[in-house]
Design a protein around this nucleic acid. Structure first.
Length: 113
DNA sequence: GCGGTGACTGACA
DNA sequence: CTGTCAGCCACCG
């Protein structure tokens, strides 16, 4: 198989594997797909993807912010989809569901803030 | 081939 | 907290 579509397939598989309410950064998706410096390629693949069932909204920046400029159409689209999954989005900041009893947040999103 | 670009990132001020 | 900045890398004109 040609290596280009192999990379794309790997990235798409990683994104599709994200479960409801789970978020990952572009860089993290790249790493899981075997591309340690692939953040920008993840972006390219997401942009080019035509699959409407692809959960692209679960991919955000490494600092926990949404990749689009606040106020843009895609920004609100992503924020809406995330909130519908129980992910809070405040002032551009995304974080997984707060679970005081479990430490799921740290597990999924080791941010150490 | 070459320079510009971007849904990025980590480091630093 | 907010900004730069240098790396990064596939794509595009």
């Amino acid at each position: 198989m040609d290596p280009k579509s192999a990379r794309e397939a790997a990235i798409l598989a990683v994104v599709r594997a994200l479960r409801t309410g789970e978020v990952a950064s572009y860089g993290e998706v790249g790493r899981r797909a075997g591309l340690p410096r692939g953040a920008r390629e993840v972006v390219r693949v997401l942009k080019a993807a035509d699959d409407p069932t692809l959960p692209w909204h679960r991919v955000v920046r490494s600092d926990g912010r949404i990749g689009f400029p606040e106020g843009s159409r895609l920004y609100s689209e992503q924020a809406r989809r995330l909130r519908r999954e129980g992910v809070s989005v405040t002032r551009g900041r995304v974080r997984a569901k707060a679970r005081p009893e479990q430490d799921l947040d740290a597990l999924l999103w080791r941010h150490g803030d």
